[in-house]
Design a protein around this nucleic acid. Structure first.
Lengths: 260, 260
DNA sequence: TAGTGGTCTAGACCACTTC
DNA sequence: AAGTGGTCTAGACCACTAA
């Protein structure tokens, strides 16, 4: 065995374990050697072996369960998010199939995942104000929710609406699911604000401590922040939304023509 | 001061420092108290104070310069990446303005950033093979580069081409910049493969150790992996590319109509 | 030269899981 | 009860930065 670069013991141990993970000697879900064993076999202190594990945790390769062991992280089923998830047929309710649709939706929604929902009047921060074209600090409706899938929280999403756009609609009703499918798109459409175009901005970063708790993120798991602006055909912004996604559970896919 | 939740000393110190960063008491670029001072003022061991700093490093809030101090990370200028960066006018060279264009481009390119370039025949891995419609393990051209901006590496990008599509073109010439502007789009267009549509897939994760070294990533900095497929108007895939971006230096922006 | 972060040791206690 | 990860202490040495 060759050490390609001289390095400190903790990194060297981490590197060896990493190689075992990559080669499949330690398969996903497999348990790493206990820190006490690592310490002994490498002739280092327990702290140093612990540090090696900590390095792999920070890289997102390993999670530790106190009292049990350290395990190779298993890949989540990755959901691919494309423009299709906003497709009209998913939220546009015609009079003909309205009843059947809501039945089917509620059934599949509860099987696959759920969401909490909380509606509030809040003060618009800078981003919200800029997007909706209102003054910073003015009151807007916030619809905040946490989405789960198979009992595991996957992402948060908070939508913001102008008061006059949604006052009196079911969006403002805070009972979960009352806004129906489509994230309020159907409600907005009924009101005459037909969603027509979306701009999505993505960026990635490490989570805040609150986000890590809320989404039950393991160490070494980044988040993707999504900012979505929805406009009518006239270019009027009818919704601004911000979400935070556990990075390992999603990919985003966009297809577009090369512009001139 | 209230401790909202009982916690271990190292996390508590980290939380206090985090609050100082958020409130501006410790501004971006500001230096944190030395670990020895922290240890003394909190009445903990040096190790514990060091751990507190390590937590903030993993969160991407702080970077440490050995021998100097630990500093609040300053936000990078963020580059917004939209479909425009692939626009035809950026790479389509008409006979009229070809000369002026190359002059301008090389000047601005060298001011703002550069790129290394390496061209090789490599074996197609699974993703490359699937995208280009060739067998796994068959030989394809790889054009790998590292982009820098202001001397700082910002992202890698590796493009893959079918041999028969680019053989004999300047894409295969490994001299940096020889492919000209547009990432080879101009060359492909000249060959009769006019790039028409792009699919981009994004996901975020922690970097591998190689990536962290190559991109000079501080601890706690995730990367965004971009996979790009470029097609002609007939749907023929002419380029598959993969890149790794330092997350904190970019946002991605996509605008699209809501599909039916 | 003084100060700084980085790493390591040897030993300790705790809370938790697993049996 | 035995084993596990998590955390902490007190002390040490190193390499590096900055004056």
């Amino acid at each position: 065995m060759r050490d390609s670069a001289e390095t400190v013991p903790s990194r060297q141990i981490a590197e060896n374990l990493r190689a075992d993970i990559a080669s499949g000697v330690l398969p996903p879900g497999g348990r790493l050697p206990p820190v006490r064993d690592l310490a002994e076999s490498y002739g280092v202190s327990r702290n140093t072996a612990t540090k090696a594990i900590a390095i792999l945790k920070a890289e997102g390769l390993v999670t530790a369960r106190p009292g049990s062991g350290a395990y190779v992280r298993e890949p989540y089923p990755i959901r691919r998010l494309g423009p299709d998830r906003y497709a009209r047929h998913r939220w546009q309710i015609t009079t003909v199939d309205a009843y059947a649709d809501t039945n089917k939706d509620s059934a599949s929604a509860q099987q696959q995942g759920g969401q909490t929902q909380e509606v509030d009047l809040v003060e618009a921060d800078e981003a919200v104000a800029a997007a909706l074209g209102v003054d910073v600090g003015s009151q807007v409706y916030e619809r905040a929710r946490v989405m789960t899938r198979g009992g595991v929280p996957t992402h948060t999403m908070a939508s913001y609406y102008r008061q006059e756009d949604v006052e009196g609609t079911s969006i403002v009703d805070s009972r979960p699911g009352i806004a129906g499918r489509g994230g309020g798109f159907a409600v907005l459409a009924e009101r005459g604000f037909d969603p027509n175009e979306i701009t999505e901005d993505l960026s990635a970063r490490m989570p805040t401590t609150e986000e890590a708790l809320l989404l039950e993120l393991p160490a070494g798991e980044p988040v993707v922040e999504v900012r979505r602006t929805t406009r009518t055909v006239d270019g009027r912004v009818i919704e601004y939304a911000r979400g935070v996604h556990a990075a390992s559970r999603f990919t985003w896919s966009y297809t577009y023509p090369i512009p001139d």
